[in-house]
């Protein structure tokens, strides 16, 4: 690709959009959290989120959530273009209210897990995952 003035301008514009993205994403996160919790206050006890402190590649990041007794656990990636990741609804034959999966993270950001307890309360756990950029072809 030849780097024309138009391209350069577009790239500059792109970086402005990129720097604005987190605010947009956080607004989207707030809405989605509210949709799950109805805006209820959240505690922080009784929920565990396990994620790597540093991920070698954002495309496949292993995470594990656990909230004993929970009806459901929802997981968000706060900095993704669309923050929702997954919702785990536990049935009567779930031996533990826990699950592990692999997720995509668009960059370094917080992963958020919120559990809905049977009494209608909510608890939240949050952890930052640093996503590194590879050396060779990133």
């Amino acid at each position: 690709m030849k780097l024309t003035r138009r391209h350069t301008l577009m790239m500059a514009f792109g970086s402005v959009v990129a720097t604005m993205l987190p605010m947009r994403a956080f607004a989207a996160l707030d809405d989605e959290v509210a949709a799950f919790t109805g805006g209820a206050e959240m505690g922080s006890e009784g929920i565990t989120l396990i994620a790597p402190e540093i991920a070698e590649n954002g495309n496949t990041v292993p995470i594990e959530v656990s909230a004993p007794g929970a009806e459901a656990i929802i997981v968000f990636a706060a900095g993704n273009p669309t923050p929702a990741v997954a919702t785990f609804n536990f049935g009567p034959l779930a031996a533990a209210q826990s699950a592990a999966t692999r997720i995509r993270l668009a960059g370094t950001q917080d992963v958020v897990a919120i559990a809905r307890m049977p009494d209608g309360s909510f608890v939240e756990a949050r952890q930052e995952v640093k996503v590194t950029i590879g050396g060779c072809g990133g």
Partner: peptide, 26 residues
């Protein structure tokens, strides 16, 4: 016929979706 787990997946779940969870076997 009885539920163990019901998962809603969004596009942020990685290629080749993997899940690990626990079940009680009566």
């Amino acid at each position: 016929g009885e539920l163990v787990i019901d998962v809603t997946l969004e596009p942020a779940i990685s290629t080749n979706p993997y899940f690990e969870f626990q079940a009680t076997v009566p």
